[in-house]
Design a protein around this nucleic acid. Structure first.
Lengths: 211, 211
DNA sequence: GTTGAAATTAGTACGAA
DNA sequence: TTCGTACTAATTTCAAC
């Protein structure tokens, strides 16, 4: 169960621990690559595509699952075909020390696909999928605004989703070499970078974890 | 293949088309519900859980796949165990009429898990997963800043992901009744709602689709 | 749209390298 | 640890109702 493989491929990052459980070697990553594209592939076919025996594939597959590296298997759907063609982001400012309530209320809202606590100007970002723009308005003004924990909101619409990957892996960078850009502008810095995150995040943000 | 089912359950939305293909009835939605939690379930077991016959399940399963309602099957992993424990959002302002280049450059970046074009103050939001905070800095200052299409960036870190669903469905609201809130505050509006999206989005945003 | 049986494939358990 | 094979169980397909 506890592997002690050579682990040669996880490229030139810091040699520190990458988690508490299983150490992922190149084969594990390859399995995750295949599973990302086809989560319903049989373990037999998986073994073939990765280049290992079936028995080995079963062992590693089960290890990844048991260790929690693979959380679960799921599908990817076309939201418009499900009748939820409108996607919006809602940035929320949360009243301090009301995080518990905020989380509880949020769990009651089925249209929320994603919610993350962030640094920066706002405290949380919510992504919702609804049928029409009116539903966004309803969601924000009638459901979110009625939560005492919500101090302020700001909404933007998503016009297009350019990239949507189930997950990224260290091996996506290729084993070692950094991916080259097509615009080889070497030494200049013409871009205002804005602040890098921690603005306004210092105020009373103690109990974030699960509060 | 083209279904003509009664479709009674998609609740009180507008009766208009919800897509170009297949009309999803209550059974289709139930299938998607099961598949969301267990994407590797056998069609036989799926049939049992949905309460339909095997053959029916196979037909509908294939129809959903062929129609594109189900895009693909995939896995959900623990990013920290994959060595990418840092998640950040980068809001990008894109120089007008350089969208094509922006998209092309972005496709070259394996650490980008998600990218959406948005209304509002910025033009795009990028979500990245990397090994450490230094990698975020490198990503923003050396890779993004060198793209001519990128005019400005603003970065925030994700401290916690509270909700992360593969997708949401109209049936999550329950068949008909709106989900009740626990805080029954009826008629008040104490929350500053900010602007609702379209701020600053009107400037030269013609060719967004694929440009 | 359903049930039941045949053919195929998947998953498990073993021994050997 | 990994591989290869044989065994068992399940799934998918195809037929008729």
């Amino acid at each position: 169960m506890t592997e002690t493989s050579s682990n040669p491929s996880t490229e030139g990052g810091p040699p520190g621990r990458i988690g508490i459980g299983l150490e992922l070697d190149a084969t594990h990553l390859k399995i995750l690559e295949v599973l990302r594209e086809n989560g319903r592939i049989s373990v037999a076919a998986l073994a073939e595509r990765v280049g290992i025996s079936r028995a080995n594939a079963y062992t590693r597959f089960e290890a990844l699952r048991a260790d929690g590296a693979i959380r679960r298997f799921t599908a990817e759907i076309d939201h418009t075909r499900a009748g939820l063609g409108i996607t919006a982001l809602i940035f929320v400012t949360v009243r301090q020390q009301m995080w518990r309530q905020f989380r509880a209320e949020l769990a009651q809202m089925p249209e929320v696909e994603y919610c993350a606590i962030t640094t920066g100007q706002h405290d949380a970002m919510i992504q919702i999928r609804v049928a029409d723009v009116a539903a966004v308005h309803t969601m924000v003004t009638e459901r979110l605004a009625n939560i005492p924990a919500v101090k302020a909101t700001e909404t933007v619409f998503i016009l297009d989703e350019v990239i949507r990957r189930p997950y990224v892996l260290p091996s996506d960078r290729g084993p070692g070499r950094p991916p080259r850009r097509s615009a080889p502008a070497p030494a200049q810095e013409p871009v205002p970078l804005g602040k890098l995150g921690f603005v306004g995040a210092a105020e009373g943000r103690a109990g974030l974890g699960k509060e």
